[in-house]
Amino acid sequence: MNMDIWLADVKHLIHSKRTSYTILIMCVFAIAMALVVKAAPPGLAEALRSAAPGSAGVFEYMWFENVLNKFLLLIFISYGAFIICDLEDDRSIAMIVTKPVTRTNFILRRTASSLSGFFFVYFVGIALSGAIAAVIVGNLDYPLFMLHHVQILPMFLFTYALTFFLSVPLRNTTPSVLTAFSITLAASFLYTFTTMADPTAVPSGYNPLTLGYLILIDSPLTEPMIISLAYAAGLYSAGLLWFNKKDI
């Protein structure tokens, strides 16, 4: 793998508006939600705390529900679309695959670039958001907050792999992102409605989108994490094989 090209891709991603807007929006959400938690009546705060016994604080519960499961999911999907769709939109993909580099090598290099770019945004954004919330709210367990954001990564890797898999046939950014987001949002709503119907039920770990909820209720995580990673690996491998066979 050509490290210079990888580094150039990563620098391009880190300096892009996508990165700065993402971190900015995360910080704005953190401020807004921290203020809401601060102003919440004691009864509501207690109810949220008891609904999420494994959380690092009420802020984390609201953060997971409103930001992680929607906005950050979309961010990760956009990074998944970077692998092929950005080049397809620029109409440069046909030229790039004619170079003396295997398609597998090309995809792996693009994957490494986009994952590096995403992890930068993710950890910087989460660290800043957590710090803002800890200052405003005061009772956030910051190390646990960061740990939970590492534990939820398999869910994001699943959505990333799903987007890549869909981008092979769909090619352009818009349909790939919309389709991936629809599927993940539908899966997210499915478990949300199920837990509303029966608050005592533990949602199935076979739905990767339940990982955030399982973290908050302090449920065993090993099996759901392995299942999400297996889905991600399967989708990514399938996408890679398909791309190798596909006539660009």
Binding site: R18, Y21, T22, F29, I75, T173, T174, V177
Partner: peptide, 19 residues
Amino acid sequence: KNNMVSFLATFGIMSFAML
């Protein structure tokens, strides 16, 4: 100037506005 930025920004603002 970018579709993804446009979608992310719209989605972010709407998520915020409905809170």
